[in-house]
């Protein structure tokens, strides 16, 4: 198992290098630089700005300089926000987004997992259709709609919850978590239902049943582990996706998270911030995909032996 993790960590180094390199040149190729503005910037000013940030150097030299700084953990100064370093912006935004993502995932697993498992026990009956339909609301109603609707109902008409903010007013984390989580609930419900159905028809479940175990024990002790494999494969990218995809929810609820910084950076052509956030995100994606692969391996009895049986 440790060997497997070690290999994957080694593999991730070139992954991150490629991401850095491609992104570095990609952002510089995109039309409109960081300093273009609605009122034309006179050439002297533009040249001075570029000189301050080293953009006047040959591109390859800029690239090497960036890698050098990166090796020291320095992601450079933000172009859009003078006086702020990219490290500082990520440090400000990431904890917020991670917390939001975690709550959202709990909501998603709570709603989606329960609905999926319950539905899979009596397929094509009311016990299937009702929980699945509830779980699907989240995907029919995208965040950009779910947010305002929840705010209108719970924030404005009922006046139960704050309409925006994060950690400012008690209860202001509830609606964003539900909004972001509900999209993923549908995926998890669908995937866990399908996974469970797949597993429930397999021999070892029949064996377990034949032994006379009560149904709930069959489900919990035998079926869940195998039935959740597709969910777990989905969770890795989903959590990484939550982090970059929380932009809409963060904007609607005025949450100072990384998602807003990341998308704004792309709109602003804030080269260093795009790169910094991309590198950071790449590391997270690698880590979460690795975690979900390990988890999937651990859950799959046949694969477990392949990785050395540990866990």
């Amino acid at each position: 198992m440790w060997r497997f993790i070690g290999f994957r960590v080694l593999q991730s180094i070139p992954v991150i290098l490629v991401v850095i390199t491609v992104t570095f040149f990609l952002v510089r190729l995109a039309p409109g630089g960081p300093f273009s503005a609605e009122k034309a910037v006179i050439p002297e000013v533009k040249a001075a700005l570029e000189a301050q940030y080293g953009l006047n150097l040959p591109m390859f030299q800029q690239y090497l300089a960036y890698l050098g700084d990166l090796a020291h953990g320095d992601l450079g100064p933000s172009f859009k926000y003078p006086g702020r370093s990219v490290n500082e912006l990520i440090a400000a935004g990431f904890p917020v987004t991670a917390e939001l993502g975690l709550y959202a995932l709990l909501v998603a697993i709570g709603i989606g997992g329960i609905a999926g498992v319950v539905a899979s026990l009596r397929p094509n009956t009311a016990q299937d259709y009702i929980p699945m339909s509830v779980a699907m609301i989240g995907i029919c109603v995208p965040s950009l709609l779910m947010g305002p609707i929840l705010i209108l109902v719970f924030g404005i008409y009922l006046e139960w919850l704050p309409v925006s903010g994060w950690g400012d007013i008690p209860g202001d984390k509830i609606l964003p978590a539900i909004t972001l989580g509900s999209t993923y609930a549908a995926y998890i419900a669908r995937l866990s239902r399908a996974g469970m159905l797949e597993v429930m028809s397999q021999d070892y479940i029949r064996t377990a049943r034949a032994k006379g175990l009560p149904e709930w024990q069959v489900v919990v002790r035998h079926a869940l582990r195998g039935g959740m494999i597709p969910v777990v494969a989905f969770l890795g990218p989903a959590f990484a996706g939550l982090l970059s995809g929380s932009f809409v929810v963060e904007t609607i609820f005025q949450i100072p998270g990384l998602g807003r910084f990341y998308v704004q950076a792309a709109f602003n052509r804030d080269y260093t911030m795009i790169l910094g956030a991309t590198v950071f995100l790449a590391v997270l994606i690698v880590v979460f995909n690795l975690l979900s692969d390990i988890l999937a391996a651990w859950m799959n009895p046949r694969l477990r032996s392949q990785y050395g049986g540990g866990a």
Partner: peptide, 8 residues
């Protein structure tokens, strides 16, 4: 696949 996930 990981690389493509990470690109902006």
């Amino acid at each position: 696949v990981d690389i493509l996930y990470a690109l902006p």
